[in-house]
Amino acid sequence: MSSTTISEQAGAAGVSSAAKVIQPAWVRIMHWINAAAMIAMIMSGWQIYNASPLFDFQFSRNITLGGWLGGGLLWHFAAMWVLVINGVLYVALGFATGRFRRKLWPISPRGVISDLGKALTFRLSHADLSVYNYVQRLLYAGILLVGVLIVLSGLSIWKPVQFQALTALFGGYDTARYVHFAAMTAICAFLVVHILLALLVPKSLRAMIIGR
C-alpha cells in the first residue's frame, strides 16, 4: 500500500472521527444551564415548601437553598427566569433543527416494553449514543411535558389572581400546589435515572461534555 493511500485513509478516518458529533455545542451548553437552574429551583422549592408543607414531613435544611422563605423565593424566581428562557430556546431549537423528530420519534409501546426488558436484564446496547432507545425517547419526551406542567402550575401558584383562569384549570390554588409538587417529584425521579445512566455509560457523560 502506498504512502499516499495510507495518508488518504488516515485523513478520511480523521474526518469521520471529527464528524461524529453526538451532542452539538448548543445542546451541551443548554443542557448544563438547565441542570444548574433546575437544581437551584428544586432546592429553593424545598425551602419554600418547608414554610408551608403539603405533607407531614419537611426537607432537611442541608438540601434546601435560601435559608428562609424570603431567600428561597428569591433563588426560586431567579432560577425560574434562567430555566424558562433557556428551556424555551432549547425546545425551539429542538424542533427547528429536527433534533426532537430524529431523537424522540417514533415511540411505540412494543418498543418501550422490549427495551425496558433489555435494560432490566442489562442486555440493552449503548454502542451508538447518537440513537436513543425507546425507553430514553419516552423519558425525554415525558420530561418535556412535565416541564410544561410545572411551569404552568408554578404560574398558577405565583400569580393566582393574574392567572386566575389557569389556576381554575388546575382546580384552584391548593390543587395547583399538589400538581406542582407532583411534577417536581417526577423531575427528581428523572434526574436520579438520568445520573445513574450517566454513571453506567460514562461515554454518554463524556459526549455531553466534549460532544464526541
Rank of each mutant, 00 (worst) to 15 (best):
S17L: 15
S17N: 14
A19D: 15
A19W: 12
A19E: 14
K20Q: 14
I22S: 10
A25G: 03
A25V: 14
W26E: 08
R28M: 02
I29F: 05
M30F: 09
M30N: 10
W32G: 01
N34C: 08
A35L: 11
A36Q: 01
A36R: 00
A37Y: 00
I39H: 03
A40G: 05
M41K: 08
S44N: 06
S44R: 08
G45V: 07
W46F: 15
W46Q: 13
W46E: 08
Q47F: 08
I48W: 02
Y49E: 09
S52F: 13
L54K: 12
F55G: 11
F57C: 06
F57H: 07
Q58H: 15
F59A: 06
S60V: 04
L65F: 14
W68L: 07
L69H: 11
L69Q: 10
G70N: 15
G70C: 03
G70I: 11
G70F: 11
G71Y: 07
G72N: 04
L73A: 04
L74S: 11
H76A: 00
H76Q: 09
F77G: 02
A79H: 02
M80E: 06
M80H: 03
W81T: 03
V82W: 01
L83Q: 07
V84A: 03
I85Q: 02
N86R: 06
N86Q: 07
G87E: 02
V88I: 05
V88R: 05
L89R: 02
Y90D: 04
Y90N: 06
Y90F: 12
V91H: 04
V91A: 01
A92H: 03
A96C: 00
R99Y: 12
R99K: 15
K103E: 13
P106C: 05
P106N: 11
I107R: 08
V112Y: 08
V112I: 12
V112M: 05
L116A: 13
L116G: 09
G117P: 03
A119Q: 13
L120T: 05
L120Q: 06
L120C: 04
F122M: 11
R123N: 10
R123E: 14
L124S: 11
S125C: 05
S125Q: 10
S125F: 04
S125E: 13
H126A: 13
H126R: 12
